[in-house]
Amino acid sequence: MSSNRIRILLAALLLIALATLPFWATRYMVSILLLICLYMTLASMWNLLAGYSGLISLGQQMFIGIGGYSLAVLSMYHGLPIFLSVFLGGVISVLLAVLISLPIFRMKGVYFAIGTWIIAEALGICFSNWGYVRYGMGLFIQPAYRLSMSTIYYAALVLCIGSIALIYLLLRSNLGLALMAIRDDDRASEAIGVNIFRCKFTCFLLSAFITGMTAGVLYLNTIFIQPFEAFGIGWTVKLLFIVIIGGLGTVAGPIVGAAVFVVLQQYLSEYVGFNLIIFGTITISVIFFTPKGIVGTFQEKLGFEIFPIRRR
């Protein structure tokens, strides 16, 4: 069998296993895979910015907060259907992204990173002073109680598979071609016609949309949302960990990274306070010893790409 057919067969088996998971796995296992799917999706979106578009965002939590609060407010206060609220959370995140892009895209490198972080912090402060969302006390998203774990799991699975497919197609599209060129030499890419701003802006909006929706599903699972947690930098720190250990700028990196992260988090949850030190130590070791992460290193050693994006 050719490697391509093996690949398709393995993917099909994995897909069937994941699609039938609630029927044969324990509730605990479903809850773990649910988390892996969500973190994987969020991490892929951070990777799309940092790994492919050269945009280091430290403010992904602004879309997580907006997505979560959109879900809470729309489904509870306005009685909209739950999954419509999740979708609108993505739409509102895009609107926010458009709004902040004017100042944020004038900033380069470190300034972009800090700028996005500051906006997320400011939003956290706004929400904690806003009576409509019960200040810093937070909200219980009551409509979410009605959903079963497997419903939430399927929503997460759809987002996860959808986002992998989206990124894969995007990288094989003309936009992906331009992103690779920009990553190699931005000036030379502009000289042969690439509109750098437009490419990065497109990725920024896409990342905001999916992150906002994923946050909705995440809070269906968490049920309780509170501003300093939702808009906290902790989210981006986790995503950074996932992408770096998995492999920055690889499609499969966030998948592997998210699995490692969620499993580690389960084991380390007993050692509150220590776990950040351990995560930090692992991240720094990876940066020093295998800067391409797990997936990047394997791909280099085996000369094999899980998601090939070359044009022939």
Binding site: N174, A178, M180, A181, G193, V194, R310, R311
Partner: peptide, 24 residues
């Protein structure tokens, strides 16, 4: 100033697709 991590064809495609505004 080649795009070093891309193939020769991909390098040239960037020009045709973006600078030339051509379809695939």
């Amino acid at each position: 100033r080649p795009f070093v991590n891309m193939t020769v064809l991909e390098n040239v495609l960037v020009g045709a697709v973006y600078g030339g505004g051509m379809g695939s």
